[in-house]
């Protein structure tokens, strides 16, 4: 099976990664944040050229943000999730634009919705939420219902208008 071969190959090269086969054509690789750039460069060189997306998952109960790089190899037909964690109180990471150029848009998206700064990113500016004035909205501690009340007021059925 190509997935198991791939896992064996990755673990041979990098002894410190945690790799496993999740299901058919799905492989998961966990790596610490310091070591991720070199693993990423290696994966790019063995055929993971297509970066599908970068997902960010907020886990306040563990005090971390989880970054998931979704990679696809057209030759091996395998989807690889490269996972790492960064501390919630120090949301900073390095950019991956030099490895996958389309990380540009996903990193800008994560900066906007989670507030993670990517060092070396040339253009971290608001893209979708211009004039945003609160904490990044996809963090778990952002309550959208309270934000609406604060921003637009509560509807008063007797007076028929919104009260601030």
């Amino acid at each position: 099976m190509i997935e198991e071969e791939l896992v064996r190959k990755i673990v041979e090269v990098f002894s410190y990664v945690e790799a496993k086969v999740k299901r058919v054509r799905r492989v998961e690789v966990k790596v610490s944040r310091e070591k991720l750039p070199e693993v990423a460069k290696y994966l790019r060189s063995i055929g993971f050229k297509h970066l599908s997306a970068i997902s960010c998952v907020d886990r306040p109960q563990h005090g971390i943000f989880e970054l998931v790089y979704h990679l696809w190899s057209y030759e091996n037909r395998v989807h690889l999730m490269l996972k790492t964690t960064i501390p919630r109180n120090k949301p900073k990471y390095v950019t991956m634009i030099n490895v996958w150029p389309n990380a540009f848009v996903y990193e800008r998206d994560i900066w906007e919705f989670f507030g993670i700064e990517f060092e070396g990113h040339p253009d971290l500016r608001h893209f979708i939420l211009d004039y945003w004035d609160d904490i990044p909205p996809l963090r778990k501690d952002f309550n959208h219902l309270e934000y609406i009340k604060r921003k637009y007021g509560v509807y008063d059925p007797e007076k028929e208008y919104y009260l601030r």
């Binding site: 599908s52 540009f104 998206d109």
Partner: peptide, 27 residues
């Protein structure tokens, strides 16, 4: 693509939407 993370409850912990136009329409 959809990336769905579950924490064991009846609601997803996180849903990430990967649309094709996010690449085609921007970069």
């Amino acid at each position: 693509g959809f990336y769905v993370v579950s924490d064991g409850s009846d609601r997803p912990w996180r849903v990430h939407i990967r649309g094709p136009s996010f690449i085609h329409g921007v970069q």
